[in-house]
Design a protein around this nucleic acid. Sequence first.
DNA 1: TAGACTCGAGTGT
DNA 2: CACACTCGAGTCT
Lengths: 295, 295
Amino acid sequence: MEAVKSAKDLVTTRDDVVAGFRWQAEEKALRANEFSAVADHFYYKAGKVGEIKGVDDIVADDRLYRFALGACALSAKAAQQLGRETCREIIGSTINFARVAEIEYQAELERRYFLTCGDALGGSMRNAIGQRAQNKLSDYVCQYLSDGQINHHVERNGGGKITEVRWAHRVLVFDRKPKFIGKNIDFILLDAGEYKTSLLEVPHKLLACGELKGGIDPAGADEHWKTARAALDRVRDAFKDRGLQSPALFFVGAAIEQSMAAEIFAQLTNGTLAAAANLHHQGQLAELAKILTNL
Amino acid sequence: MEAVKSAKDLVTTRDDVVAGFRWQAEEKALRANEFSAVADHFYYKAGKVGEIKGVDDIVADDRLYRFALGACALSAKAAQQLGRETCREIIGSTINFARVAEIEYQAELERRYFLTCGDALGGSMRNAIGQRAQNKLSDYVCQYLSDGQINHHVERNGGGKITEVRWAHRVLVFDRKPKFIGKNIDFILLDAGEYKTSLLEVPHKLLACGELKGGIDPAGADEHWKTARAALDRVRDAFKDRGLQSPALFFVGAAIEQSMAAEIFAQLTNGTLAAAANLHHQGQLAELAKILTNL
DNA sequence: TAGACTCGAGTGT
DNA sequence: CACACTCGAGTCT
C-alpha cells in the first residue's frame, strides 16, 4: 500500500490517543444529564411525606423503581437476570424506608444511584465508541463513492446506524454473521445488487471481509488485534475448508501499537491482508476505500 | 469424570447466576462509600468562600484534583494517557469556577464525579470477581489437601491473594506466563519442591495447566470459554511444536451455558481436557482437585 | 430469544 | 513502562 510504506506508518500517534480520550470525556459529559431526571423524581417524591412508605410505592413508579435498582447497585443486566421478584425483595431489604425522609439518607441513595449509572454510562460509551468508528469508516466509503461520482444508497437501522451501503453491483454490510463462517464479521462486501440474508451463505458472493477495532486504549490494542486476526483467520479457514480462495481481507484499527504494527505490515506484505489502515490516518483510509471499491 | 456424566451436569444453574449477581450488588454496595470522602472534601472546600478560585487551587489538593478529574468524566486510565498538563487544561475549561459556590452547581459536579466513580467501581469489581474465583479454587485445593492430611504451604502476595500452594513435590502457581508458551496461564502445577521462575521454562516440569473463568454473566460465558479454549490450545501447540506431550489441561468456569457445555464435555470425553468443573459444583471441584493432586 | 458482539474500567507483571 | 490480564456495562442480531 502506498500509504503504508512501513510498520511505523500504522502506529497510532500520541496525539490521536489524547484526542480519543478527550472525545470520550466530552461525550460522557454530554450524556451525564440523562440520569438526573430519575434522581430528581426521587427527591420530589421523597420530599412529600408518605409518598414512599415501602417497596410497593417504588415498584409502582417506573422512575422510582429504576432509581431504587441503581441505589441497590443493580445494573439493568443484573436486574434482568435476577427477575422482578428478586429485585423487589432486594430493594425491600436494602432501602431503609424509615429514613427515606432524611436529607442525608436521600443523598446517600443518590450517590449510590449515580455510581450504578456511571457503570451503565461506561457500557453505553463502549458501544458508542465502536459505533463512531464504524460511522467514520462508512462515511469514508460514501465520501469516496461521492468523489468518484458513483451513485450509492445508505440503509440505516432504527438508531440511525449505517447497516448497509449499496452501489453499482456491490453491497457493503456491517456486523453480519455468515453461518458457514460462524463468526460475526465487522464488514463484508457482497457482489450483489441488493442485500439478502441468504447471500451471506454463498461464499463466492463475499468479495471482502474486514475487521474494525475502534477502541483507542493502548492497553487493549494488542488484545483486540489478536481477536481481529483470529476472526480473519477463521474466514480464511472457512474458505479453505471448502477449497475456495479466500476473499480480500482488511483490518482497520484506531489503536495500533508498535509490536502489532509489525505483524500487520508483515501480513500486508505477504498478501494475507489486502489492506490495512489506521482509522485516524486519512491517506490510509482513502487507499483502503479505493481498494475496496475496486474489487 | 464421575461428577460430569453429561454436558448438562456442567451447566450453571439459574440459582447460581442469581447468587452471583446478588453477591456483586452486595459487594458494590460495601465499596460504595470509598468515594464519598473525596466528594465530602470538595463540599467542605467549596463551602469556604475563596478556597477554590481556579485550577491552581484544585491541582494543589490531591482530593480536589481527583474530584475534578471525575467531575470532568476522566477515568484514571484517561488521566494517565492525557498527562497532568492536559488534565489541568481540561479541568480549567470544564469547571465553571464562577459557579463553584452555588449549591446547585456543586450538586451537578458531585453527580458527575460519582458517575465516573461508578465506572471505576465496575472495573475494580471485575478484578475482584476474578480474584474471588481464584480464591475459591485455591481454597478448595487446600481443603482437599487438608482432608487428605497432606501437609501444604500457602504463599500469598501483599494483597493476601494466594499465589502459590506447595505440597510433597508439587507447586501450584497462579497467573504465570511461561515464555515458551507466550500466554498467561491461570494455574500451573509444577513438578518441583519449590517455585522458581526458571521452572516455567522447563516444559516437562509442567504437569498441568488450567484456565479459570470466574465471571457469572451468561452473556460473557461463551466468549470467555473461547478465550480459555484458545489459551489451552496454545499450550498444547507449544508442547507439540517441541515434540512433547501436552500436560494435563483443566477448565473451571463459573458461567457455563448449554452450548459450551457440550464442547467442554466433548473435550473431556476425547481426552483433550483432563478435567473440567463448574466453579459452583462442589462435587466437580473435588474431583478436579483429586485429579490434580494425583498427577 | 439466546448469544455474541462493542470496549475500557481497574490490576498485575 | 508497555502490555496483557480480570470481566460485565450496554447493544445488536
